[in-house]
Amino acid sequence: MSLLARNRGNGPAADASGKAARPGGKDPRSAGEIGAERRRSRMGYWLILPGFAFMLLFFVLPVFSLLATSLYAKPPGADVGQFVPALQFGNYADVLGAYWQELLRSFAFALVATVAALLIGYPMAYLVAVRLRGRKLLQGILLVLIIAPFFTSFILRTQAWKQILADEGPVVAVLRAVALLPEDGRLTATAFAVVCGLTYNFLPFMTLPIYANLERLDTRLIEAGTDLYASPFQTFRTVTLPLSMPGVMAGTLLTFIPASGDYINAALLGNNQDTTMIGQVIDSRFFRVVDYPGASALSFVLMLAILALVILYVRRFGTKELL
């Protein structure tokens, strides 16, 4: 959520206001006022306690439990699902050796889907936030349309894509007719279908943060850009895009992170050979093969890899506000 809320003040006056507070010297407030303020700030700690407790119970502890499980060993002759606590770091080498392809594929799919969602979502956000500025009704309708898919279930929408891309469906028919797809070519059960599903399902997560950012863009800055000899494209590249980077960062992270761990799209729209994503592997390790240490190790690897990629990304493109 904090990513969504972060934004830069676009107007030059944005920073100027808060400066003049307390011009040094003695604090003119009475002791009573200061005491009241201290109580208020202590109150703040009490207020974050429930959230803190929740995160401790449902995030920090599970992470440690996951870490511990990932090092468990299977004693010789044990039943299915029987493991003993150990420090078997070999689990990591085993799963990485067996599933590195799925891991890389997940990131590749997520990357392509993120880029596609950015290319679709940014113009959408720009249209609603900048071009239609001041036309409240139209803006409202379009925003509702962007969010509307959330009113149906994720699975149902993914199933619908199966129909859209089906062999006897309209998309395949058109593509075959214009010879973009061979006569026996298909779209279901391909990497293309999986990426389509990912792009579609995470599009609102891309569009909304960018919208929230562009909505505050001062359009006079765009005018200043064109006034200073920048063509419309140059103005976009040098003014609009840099100013909307916080929104782009938030949108790409909110798309990439869940997309790389997703398994529903790959399961419903992919096949069993060359579209398997890491989420599917973790799922089957946990619930079908009942290999808790392997599944835990994979989960941990996925988590660390995403974290590393995100840090690299934010370092490279991010704004000071994000790191």
């Binding site: 006079r220 200043a224 064109t226 000899y229 419309p232």
Partner: peptide, 20 residues
């Protein structure tokens, strides 16, 4: 002629300086 092709520059009312 487009704004970016005119030999004209403006000092805007609220300056419109690029904050970034």
């Amino acid at each position: 002629t487009g704004a970016h092709e005119r030999p004209v520059n403006t000092v805007f009312q609220n300056y419109a300086l690029f904050p970034h």
